[in-house]
């Protein structure tokens, strides 16, 4: 295993990088102008957080790589984001459901991370938490609104939940990297955050008149980097293309 602290920072940064990229794909084509603007704000927050996490990762690694080098010059197997965030946007409902599920986890995780013994990590968590608290407020309302809205919007949201719920479990998997982070007092135990997550999820789904899938089956392999979905490679092909094609250029 490479340095667990570096791994951990890549996980944080890759989650926001990949999700920020996905959300930015909505720019200009959202269902209504107000949503278009709000989605761009979310994407901008996530890109900003990515820069903080990945620069810190580069610093910890000590090989002269900065956030851009990590974002634009690594291949699929080096990415450490959870599978949930690399799932395609689908319709607006799927994008909102993905964002909501991630936001609930993200908020809980960052809240705990504020107590990190690593000062820089605690500081990034604190700054990010302000933004993420608002992300969650928004996606919660949207999931409730569309779940409870018309028959069509309800059905679409249920479909989105059914499709994405199998990607929730990975958020709470505890592995060697987590063990090392917990032991060092740097990051919380992800498994311990599940109960709070479920409480929020259940409350929101109830109000949204949506039904949680019965199976708790969870796809895994993104966080560990062992097996990403096919979607990530296509995203990186687009995202990294300029940097890869013109390696000598500065932009």
């Amino acid at each position: 295993m490479s340095d667990p602290l570096f791994e951990f920072l890549c996980r944080m940064g890759d989650n926001t990088l990949v999700l920020g990229h996905r959300v930015s794909e909505w720019c200009g084509v959202a269902p209504v102008l107000e949503e278009d603007i709000a989605l761009a704000n979310t994407a901008l927050d996530l890109i900003g957080q990515t820069t903080l996490w990945l620069n810190l990762a580069g610093e910890v690694e000590g090989k002269g790589r900065d956030a851009d080098a990590l974002a634009f010059r690594r291949d699929v197997w080096d990415f450490r984001n959870v599978l949930l965030v690399e799932q395609p946007n689908g319709d607006f409902g799927q994008t909102m459901m993905r964002q909501f599920l991630f936001d609930v986890w993200h908020k809980g995780y960052l809240t705990a991370l504020q107590d990190s013994k690593h000062d820089q990590i605690a500081a990034v968590a604190e700054k990010s938490l302000k933004e993420v608290t608002y992300h969650l407020e928004r996606t919660m309302d949207t999931v409730i609104g569309l779940g409870d809205g018309t028959e069509e919007s309800h059905n679409r949201m249920q479909k989105a939940l059914d499709k994405l719920y199998p990607y929730v479990g990975e958020l709470f998997v505890r592995d060697d990297v987590d063990d090392a982070m917990i032991a060092a007092g740097i990051a919380p135990d992800p498994a311990a955050l599940r109960a709070d997550f479920d409480a929020v999820l259940d409350a929101v789904l109830r109000e949204a008149t949506l039904t949680k899938p019965e199976s708790d089956f969870a796809h895994k392999g993104g966080k560990s980097g062992q097996r990403h979905s096919e979607h990530l490679g296509h995203m990186l092909a687009q995202m990294q293309w300029l940097q890869r094609t013109y390696p000598d250029a500065t932009w």
């Binding site: 209504v32 102008l33 107000e34 603007i37 709000a38 704000n41 608002y134 309302d141 609104g145």
Partner: peptide
């Protein structure tokens, strides 16, 4: 001004549109 389905989302939209947070 802006459009929103209800007062709560109008406040959130205002935050996103007119204060950029």
């Amino acid at each position: 001004s802006l459009h929103a389905a209800d007062a709560e989302s109008a406040i959130k939209n205002a935050r996103d549109v007119y204060t950029r947070r």
